[in-house]
């Protein structure tokens, strides 16, 4: 075990685990490398050095359109989506004290999916597609609220939340399939792509719309880091230590729903990131939320960038939805980590 670093002034004191700090710095570096590599690849290959000079000074380069307009917003959005889902999953896994929890469980994905498909099938004729994220967020919020209220009986117990969430997700899944079957081929194609999860056709507008959510929710999650750590010890221990449990749980659930809901609204149902990124993070850094959250976010973000880069380059001229490769890249890596851990 490494030594812990302590910083203290009269008003402020904090303890830092140097190993986790180092890993997080390496992850930042890794994410930057992945982002730059992603910007270089595509139907037009651009030298990494050119990419860097281009970003540093957009007026100088020759590929302004390809990089600034096509690729960069897509990479940034991928990172934000992956990061938001990862932190959402991390909060949920700690809250429910079950490593298999993911944003799917609290109805975010199923609710957003049902609402999005409903929108595509029945409303997209009258309203423009820019309303699709709004529909998805409304669906996610309503479903999560219904699950929360159904799970409430003199307080909310995580296990009831999981069971009701699974039940409702199954019902909404059936409804979604039903709507797809009923709708015309063109609509069901769009619905399928949305359900797999894609960042195709992202522009800066999308990034601008998603960024405020992340900028508010992540610091909020950080402020609750100590509470998250404590509530992982069990309900009774958490109350004993002075956590206002129901209040804290509601807040954490709300943060988690909002993070996942916002991400899903802009990139479709890429649920798997929320499950595996926190797991990978746990293998790398120490158990406290303050170390796990940035690590999860960087890993989740990188995963979606990698998945989307493969998706848009490997089968040119096809643009395969990122969701396909999140699972394709994530699952083997996940299994490898579990295998290594149990050896």
């Amino acid at each position: 075990m490494d030594k812990l670093l302590t910083f203290r002034t009269s008003l402020f004191s904090v303890q830092i685990h140097p190993g986790s700090l180092k890993i997080n710095c390496l992850l930042i570096l890794g994410t930057l490398v992945i982002a730059v590599l992603s910007l270089t690849t595509g139907s037009l290959w651009i030298n990494p050095l050119e990419v860097i000079t281009e970003i540093a000074d957009p007026n100088k380069g020759q590929h302004t359109f390809v990089i600034e307009t096509l690729r960069l917003p897509r990479v940034v959005l991928s990172f934000l989506v992956g990061g938001a889902l990862a932190v959402s999953g991390l909060i949920l896994q700690n809250l429910i004290r079950n490593p298999l929890a993911s944003p799917d469980i609290i109805g975010v994905t199923s609710g957003a999916s049902a609402a999005a498909v409903f929108f595509l099938s029945f409303l997209s004729g009258t309203l423009g597609t820019e309303w699709l994220p709004v529909a998805a967020i409304i669906g996610a919020t309503i479903t999560s609220l219904v699950i929360y209220l159904l799970a409430w009986r003199q307080g909310m117990s995580p296990i009831r939340l999981v069971l009701i969430g699974i039940g409702l997700a199954a019902g909404l899944g059936a409804l979604t399939t039903f709507m797809i079957v009923l709708s015309p081929i063109a609509t069901s194609m769009m619905a399928y792509v949305w359900l797999t999860g894609t960042v195709y056709g992202t522009d800066w507008q999308d990034v601008k719309a998603l960024l405020p959510w992340i900028l508010v929710l992540l610091p909020a999650a950080f402020l609750m880091a100590r509470t998250i750590n404590v509530q992982e010890l069990g309900d009774q221990v958490a109350i004993n230590l002075g956590v206002p449990l129901q209040q804290a749980r509601f807040l954490l659930l709300a943060i988690s729903v909002a993070l996942a809901g916002a991400a899903v609204a802009y990139a479709g149902a890429i649920g798997f990131v929320g499950l595996i990124a926190p797991h990978i993070a746990r293998q790398l850094v120490n158990r406290s939320f303050a170390a796990l959250a940035p690590a999860s976010m960087l890993i989740g973000g990188s995963l979606v960038i990698v998945a989307d880069t493969i998706g848009r380059t490997a089968f040119l001229p096809l643009d395969v939805p990122a969701g396909v490769f999140v699972s394709a890249v994530g699952a083997p890596f996940f299994i490898y980590l579990l295998y290594r851990q149990h050896r």
């Binding site: 008003l11 004191s13 120490n286």
Partner: peptide
């Protein structure tokens, strides 16, 4: 050590996370 540290939760705040 991490477990025992959690016992300090009621005495800590957002700024004072690990006092002497």
């Amino acid at each position: 050590y991490q477990l025992v540290q959690q016992g300090r939760y009621p005495h800590q705040g957002w700024l004072q996370q690990w006092s002497e």
